[in-house]
Structure formats: structure tokens, C-alpha cells
Amino acid sequence: MSEWRFWFAAQKGTLLAFGIFVAMFILYTSNHPAGFTANVVQTASNKGVLLAFVAMAQTLVVITAGIDLSVGMIFLLTNCLASWLVVGGPVETTLGVIAVLFVGVLCGALNGAIVIYGRLQPIVATIATGAVYFGIALLLRPFPGGSVNEDLADALTGRIFGVVPASLVTLLATVLIIWVPFSRSVYGRAAYAAGSSEVAAYMSGVPIKRGKFLAYTLAGLLASIGGLFLTFFTYTGEAAYASGNAYTLFSIAAVVLGGVSLFGGRGSVIGAIFGAFAFRTIGDLLFVFDLDPLWQPLFQGVVLLLAVSLGAFALFRVKNRLEWFG
């Protein structure tokens, strides 16, 4: 009984995110002209999965009490790279995918090295590396273009057995292959401990540096999976500054909606995935209610502002005013 309560307390944010998503998705599909069909679900999941990968990446860094403002740019960079490399026959495509993922890992590792071993503030460091990644993306694709192995792209964005969206299956596989082993490993624990209280973790001899480094590196990997998927959906590579910025911003919104604490040490990737799905669904609600798409940026901004303000409710529990200054 008491174990069950512990589990509930730890997963409260994730469950809330799941609840929000389910409520929003029911609202969405019940007002959608086509209703709850495989097609609607496939389109929604394809859009949601893109943000979910970027949000997963952001979560890993946020858990360590850091922030990665370059995820959107890694996403763009790997998208542009994939539009060059993921082409041709099966062997070339496989090598291309591996190369793209490797570049993602490299970008994440660079962020991690600068933040952890260079001891710079994550905000400024990742804004600066984000500029570098965007510059490289622009070098790769000064104009939108390129192509991708369309068989692979259609397979991964289509449906399995005509019902289950393949992108959801890929997302699940990513969670099982990357998140589950990481969160159960010593380094995953270390990432949580570093976010919760770096001093205490350091004093207890937890390998915080390696844990944080691994978190940043895996964040790069996850962002590059997102970049690959963007290429699969659009068949092209495009270095659009606004789009990279938007994904960074939305990833933070998804993380907050997903119950991951921005102060670190609390939350999980699963929550962030549902946060991403919920955020996407909320953004698309405007379309099913036939409102002008011009209002979408404002609507998403307001949702984001409200979502981050929710954290302020914790202030009511503060008994000593000095705790305001954490």
C-alpha cells in the first residue's frame, strides 16, 4: 500500500499530463469532421512524435537542472544533414542514418562538455552552440531541398497492420532502448541526483559529471532522431531559424506540461511525451473549431504562459518567505 503511494507521488506529473492529453484528444477527435479514424490518429501522432522526440531531449537536460536552448537547432541540423545522407540503397541509407545520429550525439556531447567541463551557464552556452549548429545547418541547406529514402520514410510514417501508426511504435522503441536503461543506470540516478541537489550528490560521491554528460549527449541523440523524422515527413531539409526556435520553445512547454520540474531532479521522459502530445493537440484544437490559423501562435503562447505559471501554486505551500529565493 505505501509503495503504491510512493509510486503515485513520483508519477503525479506524468499522470496529470496523460490526463490532460486524453481530455484534449477526446475534445479534438470528437470535433474533428472525420472523427476518431486511423487517418486522424496517424496524422496527429506523426505531428506529436516530432515534438515528443525534441521534448524527450529537453527533459534529459532539464532533469539535471540545466536547459538546452539548442535542441531545436540540433533538430534542424540533423534534418538538413539527413536530407543529404539518408538516400540511395539500403546500405547507404543505413550508413546515412547512423551518421545523422552520430552527429546528434556529437552536438549533445559538445553541449555537455562546454557546460560541465567548461563550467559555463547552460543558457548562454547552448544559445551560443545553437547559433553554431544553425550556421552549419544553413551551410548544408542554404535553400530548402534535398531528398530522402522514400521507402524508409513511408514505412516509418505510415501504419502497421493498417491501424497502429509506425511513428508511435518508433517512439515506444526509443523509450525502451534509450530512456529505460538510462533512468535505471547509475548515471541516470546521478543525473536526477545532480538536478535535485548537486552539492549533496557531490558529497555522496555520485558520478554527477558523467551522469550529466551522458544526459546532454543522449539529448543530442534524441534531438537527431527527431530531425530524422522531420526529414521523413517533409522529404526535404530546411534550415528555418523560426522553426528551430519554435521547437526549442515548444519542447520547454511540453516538458512543463509533462510535469518535469524546471528546477531539476523531478519528472520523466514519459510525462514529457504526453506533454508534447497534449501541447500539439491543444494547438490543433483551433483548426477543428474553425478558427483563423493566424491566432495559433498567440494561442500557443498563452497556453505556454499559463502552463509555466501553474508552478507558482507551489508558492502557497511556502511557510518561510526565505524559501522564495531557493
Binding site: L249, A253, Q296, L304, L305, V308, S309, G311, W324
Partner: peptide, 27 residues
């Protein structure tokens, strides 16, 4: 207000107001 009174990290709240300002200007 977000940073001082609601104690939201400044990076987050300013990103959000940036998005809201953008939304307002797009409209």
C-alpha cells in the same frame, strides 16, 4: 511579475512572453 512574484525561472517566462508578443503581433 512572472520572475519576481510567481518565482518562475526568468528564461522560461521571458520565452513565454516572447511567444505571446509574437502571437499578438501576428494577429
Amino acid at each position: 511579475i512572472g520572475v519576481a512574484y510567481l518565482r518562475i525561472p526568468s528564461m522560461i517566462v521571458t520565452l513565454a512572453t516572447n511567444a505571446v508578443a509574437q502571437g499578438l503581433m501576428v494577429v
